[in-house]
Nucleic acid binder design. Structure first.
Length: 362
DNA sequence: AAGTACTTCAACCGCAGCCAC
DNA sequence: AGTGGCTGCGGTTGAAGTACT
């Protein structure tokens, strides 16, 4: 090889390719003992002939104890569909909303299965519209764009929280060292300023708001990870305290068509629990024209989105593959081969697209 | 049984962005 | 402001597994 990449800090003789059990054990043992700290320094300390990047990837995508492996549930499929329709190929953002799944796993699942199924149905997996349909109206495009903007704003807020929590994070890691168990860092439910959460919350579906309360966690969610690393006590259950930090939420004084999203996302002060946060978000979701922070010239009925998750949405349907209630990745699960599942996918697509089309009240 | 095509997914690559200096 | 270290992200690859002929 002899190749030096990434600015030259990754040396050439490092091992590549699949990880062995022994390597996994070394990495796990080291992180359990010390936390990962600097990924660059980790391989030498852990006795691994790998680059830090490879170690990070292995940990993030495979070894972390809070990763759910195995087949995706139908609820997860639907969530991915909705999120992809909204966010596009922003896998890390999507992973933020799919508990215990990594961005890599979701990306693979999309590329190898969901995208193909949509394509075979004549649905453009990029636009989520039927290929023979007229290319979307500008309003629909605006809706998607604005929702993506909203999510972007939220992610920016997340990033800021992460930055601001780093100081505390390092201190807590020290505490972990003293008071084991060390940072196996199971991300607990972190409150999430999340429009999708609102959709779910306003429906009867148990999706993102599981029995534990608002449990939006992702192995790759920097917010979740950081928040939990930082706060430790920021538990789910909807009532857990969130970071003692500024909270971003929607401007409530914008008025219809008046306020750009960027100006709407602002620090409004400190909020002491996610229940309050959710309450505010739900109020926002009640599409009061005056409250809704987007600047297009029609009302945007979020309630339309809540319907997306309602098919097959009872808890029984959401049993994961561990109890083998169904095999959601098997095309046969929905009653035969792909053609037989057309209804399922058609319904899903209809919900995704119709909620975009019909969700505004003219 | 053997060869080929297809599928899956762990892992890699390179870029972008953040941060410290 | 510029630079380098480092991490995170999305696209891509390729080995292994599976299905098909």
């Amino acid at each position: 090889m002899g190749r030096i990449t990434n600015g030259g800090y990754e040396k050439a003789e490092l091992k590549k390719g699949p990880w062995t059990r022994e390597e996994d054990q070394k990495l796990l043992a080291y992180i359990e003992e010390h936390g990962h700290g600097s990924w660059r320094a980790l391989p030498a300390k852990a006795g691994l002939q790998r680059c830090g990047k490879s170690c990070r990837l292995r940990w993030t995508n495979y070894l972390r104890p809070d990763i759910k492996r195995g087949k995706f549930s139908s609820q997860e499929e639907k969530d991915i569909m909705r999120l992809h329709a909204l966010l596009g190929n922003r896998w890390s953002a999507i992973a933020t909303h799919i508990p215990k799944r990594t961005d890599n796993e979701i990306k693979n699942y999309w590329n190898t299965r969901l995208k193909k199924r949509l394509t075979r149905m004549g649905i453009d997996p990029v636009t989520h519209k039927r290929k023979d349909a007229v290319s979307g109206s500008s309003k629909q495009a605006a809706v998607v764009s604005h929702m993506a903007q909203w999510e972007t704003a939220r992610l920016e807020a997340e990033a800021r929280l992460v930055r601001e929590s780093r100081f505390l994070s390092s201190k807590l890691q020290l505490l972990h060292k003293v008071n084991s168990p060390p940072p196996l860092l199971r991300p607990q439910a972190a409150p999430c300023l999340d429009v999708l959460k609102v959709w779910q919350a306003t429906s009867n579906c148990n999706g993102f708001f599981g029995p534990r309360g608002g449990c939006l966690e992702s192995p790759t969610s920097t917010l979740n990870f950081a928040v939990n690393t930082t706060v430790g006590g920021a538990r789910g259950g909807g009532g857990g305290s969130i970071l003692d930090d500024d909270v971003v939420f929607m401007n409530t004084s914008g008025g219809c068509g008046g306020v750009k999203l960027n100006s709407c996302v602002e620090v409004k002060g400190k909020m002491d629990n996610s229940t309050q946060l959710l309450h505010d978000m739900k109020n926002t979701a009640n599409y009061s024209t005056a409250d809704y922070p987007m600047d297009y010239d029609y009302d945007y009925n979020l309630a339309g989105f809540t319907d997306i998750g309602l098919i097959n949405c009872d808890d029984d349907e959401n049993k994961d593959n561990n109890n083998n209630k169904y095999n959601p990745t098997d095309d046969n699960y929905y009653g035969g081969d792909f053609e037989d599942n057309k209804n399922y996918w058609s319904d899903l697509h209809t919900l995704v697209s119709s909620s975009l089309m019909e969700s505004h009240v003219v």
